[in-house]
Each structure stands twice: as structure tokens, then as C-alpha cells.
Amino acid sequence: MLRCEAPVHRPHSLEDALALRMELPGATMLAGGTDIMVYLEAGQLQPTAIIDLSGVPALRVLRSVTGGQYYGAGLTCTDVVGSAHAHPLIREAALTVGAVQIQNRATLGGNICNSSPAGDTLPVWLALNADFELASIHGRRRVPAARFWRGYKKTEMRPHELLVGIIVPPLAGHMHFRKVGTRLAQSIAKVVFAGRYVPAVDAMLAFGAVGPVPMRCPEAESALIAGASPAAVAALVEKEISPIDDVRSTQDYRRKVAGNIVRTWLEGR
């Protein structure tokens, strides 16, 4: 109902999108709209201009590349869920986003750039050692997921840049995803976890909704590689994360649940 008079720009190529990004550094990027429209209606956002990315075909690709898989930032959750090639962990996370109507619109890039600490897919990128490809008219650069989120709703992206894709390297190991919300759909995570573990070699334990940014637990990961027990790893996880009390849940709950999820996964592996 709230009226937004901001002009909308609809580039149809990546070049045009990047040129607009350069020209309008204060513009709001919109793809599926599932976050932006909520902010607008709540009066939390007064955009001066909108750059719509939904019409850029180059952003909606999923392909194999040297060094792994490339996910266009404009892929919707439904695209990923429906693709036989999508990584199972990414697909599982995409299935937990909202419900069908939201998955039909919400994009991978939107989830990443909205950078809510509770974003459902975000720990997955950490666990998979993904790189985010950022582009501007000056060129492209890759930022590891682990360095992308800089603080609450702050990212590594510069004003002229766009997130264009995600590169997921081919990684082996046991993997696990778990989202905890109060209901099974249309829920915002209280804790969301993605893990990957190659015994004695590599471990990634990544969480959302337990700190200002999606985060890994380096001490717990090291301990896991070194052969620590699941209970010991879980205890380190509980120490490393920094959840808060808010209207959805409590610090204490999030902390213990995060530890439990990791422990149950490792014990059952």
C-alpha cells in the first residue's frame, strides 16, 4: 500500500546493469523483491532509484566451470531446487527459504546481498568454500564467502559492484545442513547450520543467526580435524558463536542448539 515513487531501471544485459550501477551508486538492487518489498511496506527503506536485475539472463545460469560450479546470482531458489546439477547442500537450503511462492522469486544473490545474519543459504556458502564473483565496469574480482560479510548487514561489496555469481569448488566430505525455526515453512531461522567434514583433513562448521554475520567456528573446526570428540567440538562451537536475545529466541537457546546440531551430526556420521 505504501507508495514508492522511485524510478526503476531494467537493464537486459550485464553490461547495462554494471553501467547503471556505476551511474547510480545509491540505487537499490532488486531481483525477486522478497526482501526489498517487505522493507518498503514497513517503511524501512526509501530508495532513490531501483535497478532491477531480474531481466539479466547472464545472472540466471548454473554451469560447470574449471574449479567447480558457477551459480548465477539471479538463480531463484526454485531454479536450484529443480536443477539436477545443483549441489545437494545448496538445494536443501533453498528448500527452507520461505515457502513455494517465496522460492519462486527469491534469488541466491538476493539472499547473500541482503546479508541478514539469519539468511538461510548463507552458511552453505561458507561450508562449501565458495567464492563470490563481484563485477563492476572496471572488471571482476572474487571474494571468498568467509570474507564477504563484514558486519551486521555490511558486506565487502563496493558501491559500484554487483554480485554476479558464486563459484563452488568441487569438495568432498560429509556434509550437513540444518535449519531451526519455530515452524517448518515461512520461518526465519533461529539457528541455521551448514557443515562439511573430511576426516583428519578438512572441516567447515558454519552458522547463521548466531552472530552479526554468518560465521565459521575455526577452533571447533581445528579440533574436529585433530580428532576431538563430537561433544568437545560442540562445546567449542558454543564458545565461539555469539548469539543474542531477540524477539525470536534467546542467546542461551541458540548457543546450545548450535552445539547440539553439530554434535548429533558428528555422532551419527
Partner: peptide, 24 residues
């Protein structure tokens, strides 16, 4: 805010929450 689904319509066959779709 895209939670209740009472505004669900289909765009090119896909269901959406029409409260979350800018009309352009």
C-alpha cells in the same frame, strides 16, 4: 509481507505473493 499467502497469484505459471511483486 509475504507470510500469509492470501494474495497468491501466478505469473507465467509460477505462484507468487502479489504483495511482494513490484508491478513493473
Amino acid at each position: 509481507e509475504g507470510e500469509c499467502g492470501a494474495c497468491t497469484v501466478r505469473i507465467d505459471g509460477m505462484t507468487v505473493m502479489s504483495c511482494l511483486v513490484p508491478v513493473y
